[in-house]
Design a protein around this nucleic acid. Structure first.
Lengths: 204, 204
DNA sequence: ACCTGAACACCGTTCAAGT
DNA sequence: ACCTGAACACCGTTCAAGT
């Protein structure tokens, strides 16, 4: 599987040492951003990867592009998870599993996604990935509706939003134990059920 | 009402010019952070406030402390809203109104809260404010449970978490119209109802 | 082609000198 | 006490020189 990095050099093959350096950079960057968010500094990443700073900027025009590339890889992973979840007999079970897995992944790399948020919109590669991910989730959503488990007014786009909400909850409560996000994902799932109660928001 | 600023000089009165400068700084900072998050630079804030940079650092040991002070003011505002919402005859209506207002405020100052997130924990003033806010919300929650509208397993701490989740949703979807967050707050509210459906999360 | 140390620019923070 | 312009340190980005 040829890993496509978002910003740079999608096509032509790299020289062996360059390839090795690129991998090392991506790995070091993933770890650094997950831990420190966008505060992680390029000098640190370069050192962890065993390269000079300028080498990083040769592959990625900017630090933001580096973040984008790392996020791109994580989204690829999510796509796989969505496909795996689609094999459930009952679509609702798949949806539930995917939302749970996605939240877990999101939590593990919280710093990264926090840093990425501003940049996701407007990046071509990431938008394409997002679209593909939404397609897979959309099928799951449609099937769950047909099977009578999911509210009719829910759309594919709702799912990642709810996942991010739950992950956000988890971040807010990192003092309340590492598993607090489950509680909030649960509340969302309750809200998604076709057989659940309803209430309207204030008009204004 | 003497406004207490988090990091600095809670006690002694300030000289007239200092007081004026402090107010200008806080106002400029609120606008700047709301717009650009923590990317807003001190030089800009100083210029907008019409003071030298060093004047800011005289009042606030650090840029982070300045953010904290601005957040502190926003939380004070939220406290007022919670008290206003408590006057509803039916507690559920108050809870719903508060969650909606809180989400709106959160959205308006998204950059600020994004920047603050890391620092809220560990700051004395902010923790005290949070506790007081939770007290007020807690009463509302207890009453809504007694009146049979709210799930028995919900606690006060759940409310701000759900609000942040909804606001987060709004940020994620700023291309889908500015009112998208209502939809996700709605889903949460559905999940909170005592008469709603239930479903369990995957065991692992 | 690719790699790098050194230079540059920007921004948070501090300091010496002023009222 | 309070204010400030100038200096300092740090970090993203670029460049000139090396293989």
């Amino acid at each position: 599987l040829a890993t496509v990095t978002a910003a740079a050099t999608a096509e032509r093959a790299l020289r062996a040492d360059a390839r090795r350096n690129l991998d090392a950079i991506l790995e070091a960057a993933a770890a650094a951003f997950a831990e420190k968010g966008s505060d992680a500094c390029v000098a640190d990443i370069a050192q962890r990867a065993g390269v000079g700073q300028a080498t990083i900027f040769r592959r990625f025009k900017t630090k933001a592009d580096l973040i984008t590339a790392v996020v791109d890889r994580k989204l690829a992973r999510l796509e796989e998870e969505a496909e795996a979840a689609s094999t459930h007999k009952r679509a609702w079970d798949g949806l539930r599993e995917f939302m749970q897995t996605a939240t877990e992944l999101h939590m593990r790399d919280r710093g990264l996604f926090e840093a990425a948020q501003d940049q996701v919109i407007g990046d071509e590669h990431l938008m394409a990935r997002k679209a593909r991910l939404l397609d897979i989730v959309g099928e799951l959503v449609a099937r769950a509706k047909r099977e009578g488990d999911l509210r009719k007014d829910i759309v594919a786009e709702d799912i990642p939003v709810l996942v991010c909400g739950a992950a956000q909850s988890g971040v807010m409560l990192r003092d309340a134990g590492d598993e607090a996000w489950r509680r909030y994902l649960q509340i969302s799932l309750d809200g998604l059920r076709a057989d659940g109660g309803r209430c309207r928001l204030h008009a204004r």
